[in-house]
Simulated assay, not measured.
Amino acid sequence: MTTPSAPLTPEQQPAAPEGQPAAPAKKGSSILKKVGGVLVAIAIALAVKFGLPHLTGEAPVHAKAGECVTVTGPDNDPKVDTTDCSSGKPDLFKVVKVVDNTFDLNQCGPELSALAQQLNSDKFVLCLEEVAAK
């Protein structure tokens, strides 16, 4: 029966081959790197959630009554942009009224088209009238 040898002291450790680290990193610095990485990930997520849609123009438009908008994209994710009422663009609508603090499309009545939107914590319905193409 053999007894296991005693662990080597730092002086007895063999030298690391060239190109490899000599010793593992200290625990304190690896924890700081992990915390730093998590903070960076959170900062990126917040920037994407709150900043990116506004920078790329993908944020919902809170148009006012009397303005014209174009509505494009699929019904479940429409894109709304304000535009000149005389532009003659396809899918051009005039905002007849805006109903704040609701997603109730029935607020516009049967004669108008309705589009529910949310901008940050504001929710509203745009009541729209199609502008005839010229």
Rank of each mutant, 00 (worst) to 15 (best):
M1C: 09
T2C: 09
S5M: 13
A6E: 15
P7I: 05
T9K: 12
Q12R: 12
Q12H: 11
P14A: 12
P14F: 09
A16S: 02
P17N: 13
E18C: 02
E18W: 00
P21I: 02
A22F: 05
A23I: 05
K27P: 13
G28P: 03
S30T: 15
L32T: 14
K33G: 12
K33R: 15
G36K: 05
V38D: 09
L39C: 11
A41R: 00
A43M: 06
I44C: 07
I44M: 10
A45V: 01
L46A: 05
A47F: 04
V48M: 00
V48Q: 02
V48G: 00
P53R: 07
H54Q: 15
H54P: 04
L55R: 02
T56W: 02
T56S: 02
G57L: 02
A59C: 10
A59H: 04
H62A: 08
A63C: 14
A63G: 08
A63V: 03
A63Y: 02
K64G: 10
E67K: 10
E67C: 11
E67I: 09
E67M: 13
C68N: 04
C68T: 02
C68F: 08
T70Y: 06
V71P: 07
G73V: 05
P74F: 04
N76F: 11
N76C: 09
D77F: 06
D77H: 07
K79V: 11
D81R: 04
T83M: 08
S86T: 14
S87F: 09
P90Y: 12
P90S: 12
L92P: 01
L92R: 03
F93E: 00
F93D: 01
F93A: 04
K94I: 08
K94G: 10
V95D: 09
V96C: 07
K97W: 08
K97I: 09
V98Y: 03
D100F: 08
L105I: 03
N106W: 03
N106C: 04
C108D: 01
C108N: 03
P110Q: 11
P110L: 07
L112Q: 03
L115D: 00
Q117A: 09
Q117H: 10
N120S: 14
N120V: 13
D122R: 04
D122K: 05
F124Q: 00
V125N: 01
L126S: 00
L128F: 04
E130P: 07
A133H: 15
A133T: 15
K134A: 14
